[in-house]
Structure formats: C-alpha cells, structure tokens
Design a protein around this nucleic acid. Sequence first.
DNA 1: GAATTTGCCTAATTATATTAGGTACAGTTA
DNA 2: TAACTGTACCTAATATAATTAGGCAAATTC
Lengths: 193, 193
Amino acid sequence: MARAGVTSERVTRAAAELADEIGFDRVTGSAVARRLGVKEPSLYAHIANARELKVRVALLALEEMADQAAAALAGRAGKDALVALANVYRDYARRHPGRYAASRFELDPETAARSAGPRHTEMTRALLRGYDLPEPDQTDAVRLLGGAFHGYVSLELSGSFRHTERSTDASWAWALDTLDHALRTHPARRAGG
Amino acid sequence: MARAGVTSERVTRAAAELADEIGFDRVTGSAVARRLGVKEPSLYAHIANARELKVRVALLALEEMADQAAAALAGRAGKDALVALANVYRDYARRHPGRYAASRFELDPETAARSAGPRHTEMTRALLRGYDLPEPDQTDAVRLLGGAFHGYVSLELSGSFRHTERSTDASWAWALDTLDHALRTHPARRAGG
DNA sequence: GAATTTGCCTAATTATATTAGGTACAGTTA
DNA sequence: TAACTGTACCTAATATAATTAGGCAAATTC
C-alpha cells in the first residue's frame, strides 16, 4: 500500500477542520485517523497522545488569531484599532467555532508561555497606548478588554443571546462604543492625551 | 446486598462534586458510579445517558448561581448591585470551578429556556434599571455585562492572567469601576437619571 | 404472607486511547 | 540495479468508557 504521508502538521490541520465541523470536544484520534485514511495507531508516530492533539489545535488557533490581529491592527489606532481587534476575535469565532473553542483549552504554563497567547496580550497593550492609560490601569484594561471580547463572543456563539430580538451585531457595536468611551473618559487617564 | 439508594439528585450531586475536584470535562459515568458505590450500568436507571449527566450539572450550577445572585441583589441598587452580582459569579467560579465550567455547557434551546439562565438575564436587567438606560441599550448592556463578567472570570480561572504581577482582585475592582462609570455616563442614558 | 414493582447486578457490545511488535515501502549506498 | 537501512503504517492486544439486555433480590403494596 502507498503511504499516506501523515505528518504532525496534517494531523493538526485535520483535527482543526474536524473541530469546526463537529465541535472541538468531539474531536477524537479515531475520527482524525479516519479523515486521513490511516488507522488510529498510526497517529501515535506523529503525536504523543490524544491531549497533544487538542493542544496542537489550540496553538494553531491562537496563532491564526494573533496573525489576523496583527494584520488588522496595522496602521490603526484608537477606537479604530479597538474595533478591528475585537472583530478579529468575533469573526474568527464565527468562521472557526471549533478552533475558537480550542483556543480556550487549558494549556500547561510552559506551553502557554511559548504559545501565541502572549502576543494577544501585547497587541491589546499596544492598542491601549492610544488611550493613554498609566500603569497599572493599562494592565487592568488589558484584562477587561480580553474578558469582554472573549465573554461576548463566547456567549453569542453558545446561543445565550438568541432569546432576545435585538441584533447581536448592534449590541456588539454598542459594547465596543461603550468600552471605547469608558477607556477615553476613565478617571485614571492622564490629562491631555 | 443493601441498596445504595441512588437517585438522579444524588447522581447529579456526585457529578458536581467530581467536576469541582477533577474538572468538568473529566467527569465520566464510571467515575460517578464509583463514587456512589454502584456499578456503572446502575446509573442508567436514573439518567438517560452521559450527556444528561453533564446537562444536570449545568442546570444545578445555573440554579445555584441564580439563587446566590438573587440573595446578593436583595436590597442593593446601582454600583452596589453591580459589584454584588459580579462577585457572585467570580466567587462561585473560584469555589466551584467544575460547576462553573458546567454552566457554560451548551444546552439545547428548550432546556436552556427552562433553566435558570433566563433568571440571570432578568437579574442583570433589574440591576440595570438603576442606570436608567432606554431600550435597546438596556439589552445591549445586559449582553456587555454578561460577556464581561463571564469572560474575565473565565480567563482568570484558566490562568490567562498569571503572567502579570498585578493582583487580579485589583484588576477586577478596576473593571467593575470602569463598567459602572461607562453605564452611568453612556451617551444613550436618559437625562436626569 | 403473596404479588408486584423496581433497584442494582452480571454479561455483552461498541468506541476510544494506547502499547508492542511486524512488514513493506523509500531513500541511500555500492 | 541489488542490497541496506530507516521508518511509515499495519495488525494484535489491552484498558477504560458508554450503553443495552436481561436476571435476581429487596422494597412496597395488598
């Protein structure tokens, strides 16, 4: 029989596609193997175990989002940048729900440190320079924005907003307006930004 | 042999305890059966399947949080109420990380409608009356607050904030200050609140 | 105390995760 | 091109989890 040409990259890609199709929590080694046209034990030449499969999808998602965030932020500042970054997360989550769920997979500290996670923090911090917040307020604002973006996207994706008429696009725009306004008029903000 | 006295309530309680101890995603029927001192198939007299086990834990968590939220909101208004509600979620997540994770488990629409989920929306809406926002801004604010609370708590719990020195308690207080400020000074707010 | 219900059991099936060890294909050297 | 070597993928086997079928004994009802 011809060899299938499995690599850890192809395994990861197949797992990511599967996650978007059937949900991250339903991704299994056997499903990935089936999709690649090999038997399940063959995967273990390329990945250590089933957990690593999920970790790899998480790392892929974090990196894809960071790349898109970097592209979206280029040449933007202030509210323009805030809206661009926020929309990267929201759009990514809608386009790739399984990968987005994977990006919330709990990584061990060393893996998390080497992941694209810190890039997200850095980019949010860079964006906030346009709001002229002193430390430690800038750190607090990074956490608020990270939480607000993720929380909104996560609740919208899980259907928590479906019971109400109001368009989720409109609420999203309102939320970003409000966050921008809050950061611009925050008491901690230095005078004369 | 004496009967173990298994009921769906005891199964749910055992699953919830297990979730807090080992993580919601590691809760299995066999682990619950082991904890209850019965064989795994015995569970299926009380629950339909493994998914229902998770759904029941999710419903329990949503209800416990709603009850605590109702108690915390009693007699409070304005920022006081906002902080009280937010802290219910954060404290619950820290005390019961597995149950909190369960509360994010995706329910089918009918189950979600019968769950305590809508109570959370109602309570947030009630809280926002103190901010005097007209519709549809009130709905938008419900979504922003829900997202911000959940997102912050979720990121903090998953360790995303561990890389930075700044106390997460302090950032949390800052975030609540900021949200309160934003809602009080939002352009959409009616004059003379 | 007999009849009935039912709670929990054993046995068996299917799917997933994983290890051990074999075979044949691919690339390298002669 | 034939032999050599590495390794990609396989089969076989084990453990755990989810689930169904069917049986026995304990609890409940009369």
